[in-house]
């Protein structure tokens, strides 16, 4: 029972990170009509930015600002490539996947060549934080608290933006029908850039929280997280935001349970096996495609 509660807490804090990434990923899919496979890789890159900034200052605000700024800037800098791609190929999400997969490889390879000589980076131990609550096997670290509560706050803010603000309305309008949106005078390119910006903002925040949760990062982390984020989006049904919420959390919990109850190196394979089975049974996702 204690293992269960402990892993449930682990799973929820990990899952809320997946949820944020799934939301950012889906937002770009819905609004810009692209599959940004390199999005989790950008987030890992922002973790490296956090790490670099932490060597000079331990001011939390500065770290968050640096992480968010780097993620937004790079994500928006990538946008013209996808715009050119759409001009050449039309809005073909599969071609956008091929291009973003190349970007992912590029980012991973650059990280493993240039950053920290390719070795994994470790965040300072007080950054991860002491456990703020513990009883038997159950321990809740400050990092987990940041991830869980920060994650919830970010999700709430995201849905507020999307459903309660003028810009959010425009984002949803384009995701439903971009032609009609342009006919009524909504600037498509500008709004698409906005979606990259919002995803970048989410990514930058996630990078800080992931750093606090995991305490380390490596060049290979992008591929690893990327696969899970994309798989969770497919399980939910591509572009389905609310489904992504459920599946992101479920994936985090399932993975943590596998780690808690099964032999170490197999736990990830188990998580992938579960995803695979659901994908094979329901290729359109559990909650239906909305893209």
């Amino acid at each position: 029972m204690e293992i269960f509660v402990a892993q449930l807490l682990n799973g929820l804090s990990l899952g809320s990170m997946y949820v944020l990434l799934v939301l950012g990923f889906n937002l770009m899919l819905l609004v810009a009509k692209i599959i940004q496979f390199a999005y989790p890789h950008l987030v890992v890159l922002s973790m490296y930015v956090c790490w670099a900034v932490l060597r000079y200052t331990d001011n939390m605000l500065l770290v968050v600002l640096a992480s968010v700024a780097s993620c937004i800037v790079i994500n928006i800098a990538i946008e013209p490539i996808f715009r050119l791609l759409a001009k050449r190929h039309g809005l073909d999400i599969n071609v956008s996947f091929v291009v973003s997969m190349s970007m992912a490889l590029l980012i991973t390879d650059v990280m493993s060549h240039l950053l920290n000589y390719g070795y994994p980076i470790a965040f300072p131990s007080d950054w991860v934080g002491k456990s703020i609550f513990s009883s038997g096997l159950i321990a809740f670290s400050a990092g987990q608290a940041y991830a869980l509560f920060g994650g919830i706050a970010a999700v709430v803010a995201f849905f507020y933006l999307l459903y309660r603000t003028r810009q959010g309305r425009v984002l949803r309008a384009i995701s439903e029908n971009s032609l009609l949106s342009s006919i009524i005078g909504i600037p498509i390119v500008k709004t698409r850039v906005l979606s990259y910006g919002v995803a970048g903002l989410l990514g930058g925040l996630t990078a800080v929280m992931l750093a606090r949760l995991l305490g380390s990062a490596s060049p290979g982390l992008g591929d690893f997280v990327g696969m899970k984020v994309v798989a969770a989006s497919i399980l939910a049904g591509l572009g389905n935001l609310k489904g992504g919420l459920v599946c992101g959390l479920l994936l985090g919990v399932a993975e943590s349970m596998a780690i808690g109850y099964l032999a170490g190196s197999w736990s990830n394979a188990i998580a992938f096996m579960m995803m695979l089975i659901i994908m094979l049974i329901k290729p359109e996702g559990l909650f239906g495609i909305r893209a």
């Binding site: 599969n94 996947f97 696969m227 798989a231 497919i234 591509l238 992938f272 096996m273 049974i281 290729p283």
Partner: peptide
């Protein structure tokens, strides 16, 4: 299961099986 699945689902099924 994936004979006529959307392209991207086929991609992720492939990647997942490689990983397993």
């Amino acid at each position: 299961a994936i004979g006529d699945a959307p392209c991207f689902t086929v991609v992720i099924v492939g990647l997942t099986i490689i990983f397993i």
